[in-house]
Protein backbone atom coordinates (compact mmCIF):
# COMPACT_ATOMS: atom_id res chain seq x y z
CA UNK A 1 0.00 0.00 0.00
CA UNK A 2 1.53 3.30 -1.08
CA UNK A 3 -0.60 5.60 1.05
CA UNK A 4 0.18 5.01 4.72
CA UNK A 5 -2.46 7.35 6.05
CA UNK A 6 -6.26 6.99 5.99
CA UNK A 7 -9.16 8.97 7.35
CA UNK A 8 -10.99 6.91 9.97
CA UNK A 9 -14.73 6.80 10.63
CA UNK A 10 -15.15 4.81 13.86
CA UNK A 11 -18.99 4.73 13.80
CA UNK A 12 -21.33 5.19 16.76
CA UNK A 13 -20.93 1.76 18.44
CA UNK A 14 -17.16 2.33 18.65
CA UNK A 15 -17.54 4.38 21.80
CA UNK A 16 -19.47 1.78 23.78
CA UNK A 17 -20.74 -1.62 22.64
CA UNK A 18 -18.00 -2.10 20.03
CA UNK A 19 -15.11 -0.79 22.11
CA UNK A 20 -13.36 -4.14 21.50
CA UNK A 21 -13.50 -3.59 17.76
CA UNK A 22 -12.35 0.02 18.07
CA UNK A 23 -9.36 -0.84 20.27
CA UNK A 24 -8.27 -3.84 18.18
CA UNK A 25 -8.67 -1.96 14.87
CA UNK A 26 -6.42 0.85 16.07
CA UNK A 27 -3.87 -1.60 17.48
CA UNK A 28 -3.73 -3.61 14.23
CA UNK A 29 -3.34 -0.59 11.95
CA UNK A 30 -0.63 0.81 14.22
CA UNK A 31 1.25 -2.50 14.05
CA UNK A 32 0.91 -2.43 10.26
CA UNK A 33 2.27 1.10 10.09
CA UNK A 34 -0.89 2.69 8.69
CA UNK A 35 -1.92 5.90 10.38
CA UNK A 36 -5.65 6.36 11.03
CA UNK A 37 -6.73 9.99 11.26
CA UNK A 38 -10.15 10.18 12.89
CA UNK A 39 -12.57 12.31 10.86
CA UNK A 40 -12.90 15.45 12.95
CA UNK A 41 -16.35 15.83 14.50
CA UNK A 42 -17.76 12.91 12.44
CA UNK A 43 -21.50 12.22 12.56
CA UNK A 44 -23.75 9.14 12.44
CA UNK A 45 -24.25 7.63 8.96
CA UNK A 46 -27.98 7.09 9.56
CA UNK A 47 -27.48 3.32 9.82
CA UNK A 48 -30.45 1.24 8.62
CA UNK A 49 -32.87 3.65 10.26
CA UNK A 50 -32.56 6.51 7.77
CA UNK A 51 -34.77 5.16 4.98
CA UNK A 52 -34.87 8.35 2.93
CA UNK A 53 -31.91 8.19 0.50
CA UNK A 54 -31.58 11.99 0.56
CA UNK A 55 -31.08 11.92 4.32
CA UNK A 56 -28.41 9.23 3.96
CA UNK A 57 -26.62 11.27 1.28
CA UNK A 58 -26.66 14.42 3.41
CA UNK A 59 -25.40 12.72 6.58
CA UNK A 60 -22.60 10.96 4.71
CA UNK A 61 -21.67 13.86 2.45
CA UNK A 62 -20.53 15.71 5.57
CA UNK A 63 -18.19 12.91 6.70
CA UNK A 64 -16.84 12.45 3.17
CA UNK A 65 -16.29 16.19 2.74
CA UNK A 66 -14.25 16.42 5.96
CA UNK A 67 -12.00 13.54 4.83
CA UNK A 68 -11.73 15.01 1.32
CA UNK A 69 -10.27 18.24 2.73
CA UNK A 70 -7.32 16.18 3.96
CA UNK A 71 -7.19 14.29 0.67
CA UNK A 72 -7.51 10.95 2.44
CA UNK A 73 -9.54 7.85 1.56
CA UNK A 74 -11.91 6.88 4.38
CA UNK A 75 -11.81 3.54 6.16
CA UNK A 76 -14.45 2.29 8.58
CA UNK A 77 -14.75 -0.91 10.63
CA UNK A 78 -18.57 -0.78 10.42
CA UNK A 79 -20.35 -2.50 7.51
CA UNK A 80 -23.37 -0.21 7.58
CA UNK A 81 -21.25 2.96 7.79
CA UNK A 82 -19.36 1.54 4.81
CA UNK A 83 -22.55 0.88 2.85
CA UNK A 84 -23.92 4.36 3.51
CA UNK A 85 -20.61 6.08 2.70
CA UNK A 86 -20.15 4.04 -0.47
CA UNK A 87 -23.64 4.55 -1.85
CA UNK A 88 -23.42 8.26 -1.07
CA UNK A 89 -20.06 8.41 -2.82
CA UNK A 90 -21.51 6.64 -5.88
CA UNK A 91 -24.59 8.83 -6.01
CA UNK A 92 -22.76 12.12 -5.56
CA UNK A 93 -19.96 11.25 -7.99
CA UNK A 94 -22.53 10.53 -10.70
CA UNK A 95 -24.83 13.48 -10.14
CA UNK A 96 -23.72 17.08 -10.19
CA UNK A 97 -27.20 18.31 -9.33
CA UNK A 98 -27.27 16.16 -6.22
CA UNK A 99 -23.87 17.54 -5.18
CA UNK A 100 -25.22 21.07 -5.53
CA UNK A 101 -28.29 20.11 -3.54
CA UNK A 102 -26.08 18.85 -0.71
CA UNK A 103 -23.94 22.00 -0.71
CA UNK A 104 -27.10 24.06 -0.53
CA UNK A 105 -28.16 22.35 2.72
CA UNK A 106 -24.88 23.53 4.25
CA UNK A 107 -21.50 24.43 2.72
CA UNK A 108 -19.83 21.78 4.89
CA UNK A 109 -21.66 19.15 2.81
CA UNK A 110 -19.79 20.16 -0.37
CA UNK A 111 -18.20 16.96 -1.57
CA UNK A 112 -16.39 16.66 -4.93
CA UNK A 113 -16.10 12.90 -5.11
CA UNK A 114 -12.29 12.73 -5.10
CA UNK A 115 -11.81 10.12 -2.36
CA UNK A 116 -12.93 6.51 -1.86
CA UNK A 117 -14.63 5.03 1.21
CA UNK A 118 -13.47 1.56 2.22
CA UNK A 119 -14.19 -1.15 4.75
CA UNK A 120 -11.27 -2.32 6.94
CA UNK A 121 -11.47 -5.87 5.55
CA UNK A 122 -11.02 -4.45 2.03
CA UNK A 123 -8.05 -2.31 3.12
CA UNK A 124 -6.38 -5.18 4.99
CA UNK A 125 -6.69 -7.73 2.18
CA UNK A 126 -6.64 -5.63 -1.00
CA UNK A 127 -4.65 -2.49 -0.18
CA UNK A 128 -2.18 -3.61 2.47
CA UNK A 129 -2.37 -7.08 0.96
CA UNK A 130 -1.42 -10.65 1.75
CA UNK A 131 2.35 -10.26 1.20
CA UNK A 132 2.65 -7.30 3.53
CA UNK A 133 0.50 -9.01 6.17
CA UNK A 134 2.52 -12.21 5.85
CA UNK A 135 5.74 -10.33 6.52
CA UNK A 136 4.37 -8.97 9.81
CA UNK A 137 2.81 -12.16 11.17
CA UNK A 138 4.82 -13.59 14.06
CA UNK A 139 2.38 -16.05 15.64
CA UNK A 140 0.00 -18.76 14.54
CA UNK A 141 -3.60 -18.52 15.69
CA UNK A 142 -4.64 -22.15 15.41
CA UNK A 143 -8.36 -21.71 15.94
CA UNK A 144 -11.30 -23.15 14.10
CA UNK A 145 -13.27 -20.18 12.86
CA UNK A 146 -16.73 -19.64 11.40
CA UNK A 147 -16.14 -16.62 9.13
CA UNK A 148 -19.28 -14.49 9.28
CA UNK A 149 -19.62 -11.64 6.77
CA UNK A 150 -23.20 -10.45 7.30
CA UNK A 151 -24.97 -8.23 4.81
CA UNK A 152 -23.03 -5.30 3.42
CA UNK A 153 -19.67 -6.80 2.50
CA UNK A 154 -21.05 -8.62 -0.55
CA UNK A 155 -24.36 -6.82 -1.01
CA UNK A 156 -25.68 -4.82 -2.76
CA UNK A 157 -23.48 -5.23 -5.83
CA UNK A 158 -23.01 -1.47 -6.35
CA UNK A 159 -21.02 -1.13 -3.13
CA UNK A 160 -19.80 -4.70 -2.52
CA UNK A 161 -16.10 -5.63 -2.38
CA UNK A 162 -16.52 -9.40 -2.06
CA UNK A 163 -18.76 -12.11 -3.52
CA UNK A 164 -22.46 -11.79 -2.55
CA UNK A 165 -23.00 -15.50 -1.92
CA UNK A 166 -19.58 -16.89 -1.09
CA UNK A 167 -17.27 -14.10 0.07
CA UNK A 168 -13.66 -15.15 0.69
CA UNK A 169 -11.59 -12.27 2.07
CA UNK A 170 -12.04 -13.20 5.73
CA UNK A 171 -11.52 -16.90 4.95
CA UNK A 172 -8.19 -16.00 3.33
CA UNK A 173 -7.15 -13.86 6.28
CA UNK A 174 -7.98 -16.65 8.72
CA UNK A 175 -5.89 -19.13 6.72
CA UNK A 176 -3.07 -16.61 6.57
CA UNK A 177 -2.84 -16.41 10.37
CA UNK A 178 -2.83 -20.20 10.77
CA UNK A 179 -6.52 -20.70 11.51
CA UNK A 180 -8.94 -23.17 9.97
CA UNK A 181 -12.28 -22.22 8.43
CA UNK A 182 -15.12 -24.56 9.37
CA UNK A 183 -17.77 -25.32 6.71
CA UNK A 184 -19.99 -22.27 7.02
CA UNK A 185 -20.81 -21.12 3.50
CA UNK A 186 -24.59 -21.33 3.94
CA UNK A 187 -24.49 -18.92 6.89
CA UNK A 188 -21.68 -16.59 5.88
CA UNK A 189 -23.90 -13.89 4.48
CA UNK A 190 -27.21 -14.50 6.27
CA UNK A 191 -28.43 -11.47 8.20
CA UNK A 192 -27.74 -11.57 11.99
CA UNK A 193 -31.15 -10.04 12.75
CA UNK A 194 -29.68 -6.85 14.20
CA UNK A 195 -31.97 -4.36 12.44
CA UNK A 196 -35.05 -6.08 13.91
CA UNK A 197 -33.75 -6.31 17.47
CA UNK A 198 -35.73 -3.38 18.84
CA UNK A 199 -38.98 -3.96 16.94
CA UNK A 200 -39.22 -7.74 16.41
CA UNK A 201 -36.82 -9.30 18.91
CA UNK A 202 -38.46 -12.71 18.36
CA UNK A 203 -37.38 -12.79 14.69
CA UNK A 204 -33.99 -11.21 15.45
CA UNK A 205 -33.19 -13.79 18.13
CA UNK A 206 -34.10 -16.64 15.80
CA UNK A 207 -31.83 -15.23 13.08
CA UNK A 208 -28.95 -14.88 15.55
CA UNK A 209 -29.56 -18.40 16.86
CA UNK A 210 -29.22 -19.85 13.37
CA UNK A 211 -25.86 -18.20 12.80
CA UNK A 212 -24.47 -19.12 16.22
CA UNK A 213 -25.72 -22.71 16.34
CA UNK A 214 -24.58 -23.40 12.78
CA UNK A 215 -21.10 -22.24 13.83
CA UNK A 216 -21.24 -24.41 16.92
CA UNK A 217 -22.43 -27.49 15.03
CA UNK A 218 -19.67 -26.98 12.47
CA UNK A 219 -17.14 -27.30 15.29
CA UNK A 220 -15.98 -23.67 15.41
CA UNK A 221 -14.03 -22.32 18.40
CA UNK A 222 -15.34 -18.88 17.55
CA UNK A 223 -17.24 -16.76 15.05
CA UNK A 224 -15.19 -14.01 13.39
CA UNK A 225 -16.89 -10.91 12.07
CA UNK A 226 -16.24 -7.45 10.71
CA UNK A 227 -19.21 -5.31 11.77
CA UNK A 228 -20.07 -3.80 15.17
CA UNK A 229 -23.80 -4.37 14.67
CA UNK A 230 -23.27 -8.08 14.02
CA UNK A 231 -21.05 -7.98 17.13
CA UNK A 232 -23.85 -6.43 19.16
CA UNK A 233 -26.37 -9.04 18.02
CA UNK A 234 -24.19 -12.16 18.10
CA UNK A 235 -21.92 -11.41 21.07
CA UNK A 236 -23.38 -8.73 23.36
CA UNK A 237 -26.94 -10.04 22.96
CA UNK A 238 -26.02 -13.74 22.92
CA UNK A 239 -27.04 -14.28 26.57
CA UNK A 240 -30.40 -12.65 25.74
CA UNK A 241 -30.82 -14.98 22.75
CA UNK A 242 -30.08 -17.95 25.03
CA UNK A 243 -32.51 -16.75 27.69
CA UNK A 244 -35.34 -15.95 25.25
CA UNK A 245 -35.08 -19.28 23.43
CA UNK A 246 -34.21 -21.40 26.48
CA UNK A 247 -31.00 -22.72 24.93
CA UNK A 248 -27.28 -22.67 25.72
CA UNK A 249 -24.90 -21.60 22.96
CA UNK A 250 -21.76 -20.14 24.57
CA UNK A 251 -20.09 -19.34 21.24
CA UNK A 252 -17.21 -16.85 21.46
CA UNK A 253 -17.54 -14.07 18.87
CA UNK A 254 -14.52 -11.95 17.94
CA UNK A 255 -13.71 -9.22 15.50
CA UNK A 256 -11.37 -10.22 12.68
CA UNK A 257 -9.01 -7.46 13.87
CA UNK A 258 -8.72 -9.22 17.23
CA UNK A 259 -7.62 -12.47 15.55
CA UNK A 260 -5.23 -10.69 13.19
CA UNK A 261 -3.83 -8.72 16.13
CA UNK A 262 -2.94 -11.95 17.94
CA UNK A 263 -1.06 -13.15 14.86
CA UNK A 264 0.79 -9.83 14.71
CA UNK A 265 2.01 -10.50 18.25
CA UNK A 266 -0.10 -7.82 19.94
CA UNK A 267 -0.93 -8.70 23.53
CA UNK A 268 -4.58 -9.78 24.12
CA UNK A 269 -5.31 -6.87 26.46
CA UNK A 270 -4.35 -4.35 23.78
CA UNK A 271 -6.87 -6.11 21.53
CA UNK A 272 -9.58 -5.82 24.22
CA UNK A 273 -10.20 -9.58 24.13
CA UNK A 274 -11.45 -9.38 27.73
CA UNK A 275 -14.25 -7.05 26.64
CA UNK A 276 -16.11 -9.52 24.41
CA UNK A 277 -19.23 -10.73 26.17
CA UNK A 278 -18.66 -14.46 25.63
CA UNK A 279 -15.34 -15.49 27.15
CA UNK A 280 -12.52 -15.64 24.56
CA UNK A 281 -9.94 -17.56 26.62
CA UNK A 282 -10.34 -20.63 24.42
CA UNK A 283 -8.74 -18.63 21.60
CA UNK A 284 -5.79 -17.39 23.65
CA UNK A 285 -4.83 -21.00 24.41
CA UNK A 286 -4.42 -21.65 20.69
CA UNK A 287 -1.97 -18.88 19.87
CA UNK A 288 1.46 -20.39 19.28
Amino acid sequence: MSEKKLAFLPGCPSEATALDQEISTKAVFKALGVELVEIEDWNCCGAAEAEDPKLVYALNARNLAIAEKDGLDVVTPCSICYYNLARTNNALKADEKLRAEMAEIDPSLSYNGTITPKHILDVLMNDIGVDELKSKIVKKVEVKVAPYYGCYIGRPLETAFDDPDDPVLMDQLIELIGGENVPFSYMKTKCCGGPLMMTRADIAFEMARKVLETAKNAGADCVALACPLCGMMLDAKQPDVEKALGIKIGMPVVYITQLLGLALGIDPKSLALEKNTIDTKVILGKVV
Binding site: E15, A16, L19, D41, N43, K54, R62, I105, D106, S108
Partner: peptide, 27 residues
Protein backbone atom coordinates in the same frame (compact mmCIF):
# COMPACT_ATOMS: atom_id res chain seq x y z
CA UNK B 1 -15.36 2.06 31.34
CA UNK B 2 -11.79 2.97 30.62
CA UNK B 3 -12.95 5.73 28.28
CA UNK B 4 -14.43 8.24 30.69
CA UNK B 5 -16.67 7.76 33.67
CA UNK B 6 -20.01 7.99 31.89
CA UNK B 7 -19.08 6.67 28.45
CA UNK B 8 -22.17 5.39 26.72
CA UNK B 9 -24.37 6.74 29.50
CA UNK B 10 -24.24 10.37 28.44
CA UNK B 11 -24.66 11.31 24.78
CA UNK B 12 -21.57 11.80 22.64
CA UNK B 13 -22.34 15.16 21.09
CA UNK B 14 -20.61 16.57 18.02
CA UNK B 15 -19.67 20.26 17.73
CA UNK B 16 -21.63 20.99 14.57
CA UNK B 17 -25.10 20.02 15.77
CA UNK B 18 -26.38 23.11 13.91
CA UNK B 19 -25.51 21.34 10.63
CA UNK B 20 -27.45 18.26 11.75
CA UNK B 21 -30.45 20.46 12.45
CA UNK B 22 -30.20 21.98 8.96
CA UNK B 23 -29.91 18.52 7.32
CA UNK B 24 -33.05 17.25 9.00
CA UNK B 25 -34.98 20.47 8.44
CA UNK B 26 -34.17 20.67 4.75
CA UNK B 27 -34.38 16.98 3.85
Amino acid sequence: GGHGLLKGVLPSKIKKTDVMKKIFEKV
